[in-house]
Design a protein around this nucleic acid. Structure first.
Lengths: 213, 213, 213, 213
DNA sequence: GATGAATGAGTCTTCATTCAT
DNA sequence: AATGAATGAAGACTCATTCAT
């Protein structure tokens, strides 16, 4: 008896969250009205409130759930013991984000940006995002350490700092895709690979320049 | 008479836009109410509508104006004929964005994220952002070409693709700062420098062996 | 079968009415929601509607039932052939009301006031209260007549008018307890006794002089 | 300039409070909807909220304002140095309450009962009522002291306790009028006068009875 | 006999905008 | 040129009640 009920409940919650995602995707968090979510979910206002305590609950749940799903797809990628290089991994993550989006009739890219915006004003959303991206960055740092062991990344660099740059690349890929709409993972891979073939960076260059004068 | 009027007009508009920035910074575009902007600007509701046709007008104007100001500070950086390397330039841009924020009682970092979010649903905002970031990216591509001429970036790589990665780094820096709050330009510079010393992965290694030798 | 059913039915009804009392005691009639009563009674929404036709039915039934209970305790007091004086009887009634309250986890004093309020807008509640208080007043009038026979109350006064004053004293005791919270029956007894030792005012003095002597 | 504005403001607030009284008179506090008050006041919902912060604000203000008005009419009565006796004063107060009601298209008697009910669940209303009735009772105690000096009330009785009984009489008069609808001040005056001609109360009677056995 | 799920009408409140002065 | 006052449409959320099982 509880089994059916619980199952029903989870099903309804998923239905509502999916509707919420489609709405947020279109209008962002604040401009999405309960009425829209309700219409999109195909049920009545009062029914909603049996499953979620309010708009914020829906928003936070939707973000949490979705990040969990995204996490399930990204973590194996990062943890994999393949011999992908930095540009390849970044590109793979980008592809995965795009693929994740495509599945359910909404695009994760604009939603991510809406979520970042909401995190600026909603403490709970901020907490959820921080936890997710913090864990993501920590995993990237682990990968950097493995790259260092394999000799693919300079051994004396700080894995945390490299992971920070990698996270920026991923977030920046999403942001640029959201705004410009024209970025693709392969181009990013090539561009990043080009940077990796860069001659020694400017600080050292400068120092050399100075010392040579 | 018209001169004074125009000057007055511009002054009032600036006053309103500044108020709008402070509000948007706190609450985002959608959750900011006209009432808040009016209160923050210290004038009457009807006065507002004498200088702007409505909320959207204020939002678009505020974003346009601010990006123009940001542009004025970033363009010289990118166009400069100094011998900054890639990581250094990215770090400098990050610092500049942070510095730009600090001046007027609001932080550009959250505002940027709010703007990206708004661009997903407001065509005019999207157009403004696309133009700005497109021009920014084009300028970065020019810089990449110069780096290529100087031998600091691999000569056969596509400048547009490298510029795309650079833009991602900058946007990602902003996004990460907005969400995590703990990134600083120097760490990014060092992390990026580490990536630039990366050994290409096995597959690529062969290619490089072929092409560069 | 019908017997068990009836017994079961009465038991369920009592359970619901008790729950309703506890809710009304806390929030008043209008602000008490069916949901609250349902939760307090510990059964389902639909079960409710099997035993009562709706909220009004519950409210009217609860008031009726409770007044019947109160009546059972007050009537013997009034009808008793003890030699209680006016102040003592009023105080005893007050004590009884307080005691009646204490039994079941709710306080009759606030509930009475909520009932009076509801009677202003609900015809059925008004009818129930009028009948109860009317009968109560009539019984008090009987007692006044007995007091007159005993010489405890001036013989030529109108028993109905004296009963009216006595009812006011009882209702006022309840109202004052509800609002001020600090009245106790004993103080009322003493205060009322003091009034009974009052010297009639000048105008009345003459009349009394004439009529009683 | 501020003068006109302030005057306008007070006028509008009075208009709204009057509308609120008429609604509360009909339906009680909880069952009165903002929509009703708005319609009764003849303005728009948003206009209301310029003058009152919400429903509770209206309710508390309405009660406060009205009690102030009632106070202005009752205080002179109680403080007067006329030679009214206890029954006469109680009756006069009752008449005044009825007269106060009649003026503005609503009846204070049901409203008072609604207010008492609301006080059971709304702290601010309770505070307002307690202050009012507390002050009222204190004034009655002063009057009792004067009666004691004049010899109209037994000198050794506690004025506070007598005042408590007097307040009960007034509140009870209101309650009885609200519920039964048939009480009038003159009947109360006569009934109370009859009680004042009562033979020594039962406690003493009893004691005497016992001691005489 | 009983219940969990559902709902339409309504509840208070706020919004961007306009109007009379 | 400027403002305080006003508004209609919509915002999130709740209510008493009913229905399919």
């Amino acid at each position: 008896m509880p089994k059916i009920s619980d199952q029903h409940r989870e099903q309804r919650r998923a239905q509502i969250l999916d509707a919420a995602w489609r709405c947020i995707h279109r209008e962002g968090v604040q401009a999405t009205t309960m009425e829209e979510i309700i219409a999109e979910a195909g049920l009545s206002a009062s029914a909603m409130y049996r499953y979620f305590s309010g708009k914020e609950d829906i928003v936070v749940s939707a973000i949490t759930t979705s990040l969990r799903g995204l996490s399930e797809r990204l973590v194996p990628l990062i943890d994999a013991t393949d011999d992908l290089g930095v540009p390849e991994l970044v590109a793979r993550i980008g592809s995965e984000i795009r693929a994740f989006s495509a599945r359910r009739g909404f695009d994760l890219v604009p939603i991510a940006v809406h979520g970042w915006s909401e995190a600026q004003r909603n403490e709970r959303v901020r907490a959820v995002l921080r936890e997710f991206y913090g864990a993501f960055r920590a995993r990237l740092a682990d990968r950097v350490r493995r790259w260092q062991r394999d000799g693919a990344v300079a051994p004396r660099s700080d894995p945390a700092e490299v992971a920070e740059v990698l996270l920026s690349l991923v977030l920046g890929f999403v942001a640029q895709a959201a705004i410009m709409g024209d970025v693709d993972p392969a181009a990013h891979r090539r561009g990043l690979a080009a940077l990796a073939r860069t001659t020694p960076p400017a600080v050292e260059l400068k120092q050399r320049t100075r010392s040579s004068r």
